[in-house]
Design a protein around this nucleic acid. Structure first.
Lengths: 157, 157
DNA sequence: ACGATTAGGTTGATGCGTCAACTGATGGTT
DNA sequence: AACCATCAGTTGACGCATCAACCTAATCGT
């Protein structure tokens, strides 16, 4: 593998990258800490409940839900099993297509989400939204979308 | 807890946040996939080796290294133990202060890092640097630093 | 100088995520 | 109609991160 011509990162590129790397390590951890402490939920679990709550019938196929929550189907399956054991979610096969499993948010799950939401939203505001100007927020969305397109082309074609 | 006055996210705030959330989930995963497949290293392990390589004597106290790699001391301890078993790192107590353990990069560890670096840098370029304009890169650094200051105040006082 | 407190690291148990293998259902082919 | 390939989802084993408990060395107070 003749890798003689590596384009190393220039100082300012390196700095920007290290900042982003730090962000990727610390922001998820900080969000999980708050949610776990105040609500006993993971950020991923929160996204699952939220994804169900905003769907018609509070129901959604597993694959669909996995895409929304940015996780693999396998991960979702494990998580939903635990959420089901806690009484927050139900699962039943779709009558239309026997391969599809539809997850449904229970009343208890909805209560849990409603209880967790204010604290979570406040944290997101504190760490992200209120730390930036509206213009920066819009820059962030543009930048994030561009990176995501490279990382994961073909999400939402 | 009278949380009657929750400041929910406005649509554009929500969109920006969901983009950032997607980024936090997918970018680390994508980086780990490349490093793991091509070099058998985690991104965190890579940062540990890199942090040692750029230090005088290729050595650094554990706490210092943990801060550089954005991880807890406990996590670093486990990881360094594995890296030591693989022959990439040595550990010995500091003669100056018996509490301190200094980790040292071995020649084998340096070789490993040198072998992994080009592929990793190319991936970072592909996913991040080359996806953005120089101006966006500078915006990203500013934005990331502002968020990090909220998330983790008192890193690099 | 001696006891208490703090700082730096390590360890073991627990829980979650990933991967590969597998099951069942559906659609297409001949 | 029988078969094969594909799709949706589940499961179990394995590896890593987290947390709490613990240990030793250094420092502080008196």
């Amino acid at each position: 593998m003749g890798d003689d011509e590596v384009r190393w990162l220039k100082p300012d590129e390196l700095q920007a990258w290290m900042t982003l790397a730090g962000l990727m390590f610390k922001l998820p951890a900080a969000l999980d800490v708050q949610l776990q402490r105040d609500s006993g939920l993971t950020h991923f679990e929160y996204l699952v409940l939220a994804g169900l709550s905003e769907s018609p019938e509070r129901s959604r196929p597993m694959s669909d839900l996995a895409g929304f929550a940015n996780g693999s189907l396998s991960r979702l399956s494990h998580v939903v099993k635990r959420l089901e054991q806690r009484g927050f979610v139900r699962r039943c096969p779709s009558p239309a297509d026997g391969r599809i499993t539809v997850a449904t948010l229970t009343d208890a799950g909805y209560e849990e989400l409603v209880a967790a939401a204010p604290g979570h939203v406040a944290t997101v505001r504190q760490y992200v939204i209120d730390a930036l100007t509206p213009e920066q927020l819009s820059q962030l969305k543009t930048i994030g979308d561009q990176i995501l397109q490279k990382v994961d082309p073909g999400r939402a074609c």
